[in-house]
Each structure stands twice: as C-alpha cells, then as structure tokens.
Design a protein around this nucleic acid. Sequence first.
DNA 1: AAAATATATAAGTAAATGATTATATATAAG
DNA 2: CTTATATATAATCATTTACTTATATATTTT
Lengths: 108, 108
Amino acid sequence: MENTLIEKQLKAAADLNRIKLLACMKNGEVCVCDFVDVLGISQPAVSQHLRKLKEAGIITERKVGTWKHYRLVEDQTPLMKGILEQIQPLNGCNCGTNCCHVGGNDNE
Amino acid sequence: MENTLIEKQLKAAADLNRIKLLACMKNGEVCVCDFVDVLGISQPAVSQHLRKLKEAGIITERKVGTWKHYRLVEDQTPLMKGILEQIQPLNGCNCGTNCCHVGGNDNE
DNA sequence: AAAATATATAAGTAAATGATTATATATAAG
DNA sequence: CTTATATATAATCATTTACTTATATATTTT
C-alpha cells in the first residue's frame, strides 16, 4: 500500500468524531440521523465526516428511501483492518434500535 | 486502548512527513540532521514533527553528545504495531550510512 | 573563554480543518 | 401539487496545523 493512501486513510480516521462513527458502524449499518444524536453535532457536520470516510474508501452507503445507510466496506485495507480492530464498537446507534424510523424499521 | 489515545496516535501518524520519519526509523536510530535532508524542510520543522511523535508515545530519543538520536519505542501499542507494519522502511537515512557524523560514526 | 555545531523553543503566518447556518435536492406523504 | 423529511452542498468562520525565521540552549572544539 503506498504512502499516499496510508496518509489519506490515517487522516480520515484521525478525528474523535469520525472514530465514533466507525465505532457505531462496527455493529452494522447506521443512518445519518442516528449519528447526529450520538455526536451532538449538526447534520451537515455529520454528512461531511461521512464523506471524508467514504472518500478514503473506508465506508460505503446504501440508499433506503429518503434515508441513507452507511456501513464499513467489506474488504478493508490491511491498515484499516488493524485500526478498526482497536476501535471498540459503540452500541445504541444502529438503525435497528433507535433509528429515525423506529416503529417502521425497514432493515431486512 | 481508549479512544483518546487512539486519536492522539492516529493524529501523530497522519502526516506524510511524519510517515517518512517513521519509515526512516524502521531501520534504526536516526538523528535530526538526517531528517532535514530526507524531508527537505527546515530543522525546526523536523524538530516539531519529532516532538509530536514523541508526545504520542511512538518514538523516544537518546542524546549522543550534541546530537540526538531518535528511534521507535520498543513496546508499541497494538494500534501503532499495525500501522507501522504498513509503512515501508525507508533506506539511506539512518545514522550508520549518511549521518551528519559520517566518518566518525559512534553507533555501537 | 570564545566560536562552532546540533537541536529546541518562540513568534508569526498561510493553509487546512471542523464547525455553523443557509440552501439545494430528492423522496415520501397528504 | 404542496408540504414534510432526510441528506448533501455551499458559504462562512474560528481553530488548528505545518511551516518559516529568529533566538535560546547545550555541547564540543579551538
């Protein structure tokens, strides 16, 4: 893996809010609205963090109606595998439990 | 390992110049003057990068007369072990070969 | 002791970053 | 078709960062 990709992924991971986003996604898909509650920052701020993680190839997205579900990509680089192993999963933030569309959960 | 240490070490590693410093030190001790040539930045800039790596607990130093030799700490955190594995060693920058005191090498 | 050398610290600056508010887009619901 | 909802983008701003030059400290050499 070349140094520039290493740098890009390290930069993407080197932020406490983005670490928390990754910690959330260790349990599965999460939608944007959940992250807003978890991080206590504005929706656009969350959106921008997610974009940075996506551009580094760490996460991917899936559109579900109006919502967007984000998750870790399946084949992480060796670098990200190692980093993700060290991040403790964060519960209570995935769509299944407290998503914006609780009571009408459309995960299958 | 708690998230704040993870963040600190990721931030310390998430810079191309500091990645190169780490790549140099994979081969052993390096002194500051060597880094100046390798990175093409000023001596104070190098000094500041090294301080950041030191404050994150990634490297340590040893004083040798007027010089200071820097090296990776022996017991890296699991996080840093993983990251360092992905950084390719960079040759031609350690004290043994082109140090400021070539011809009077005092490594033992 | 004075001069030279290696490194660190301080002060200042430009660029990058992470937040905000405002707005745009897209889908869903009435 | 209008309104509401979820997310993204744009514009702006404050903070942090990475550099520079200037200076301080410590050691060695003369």
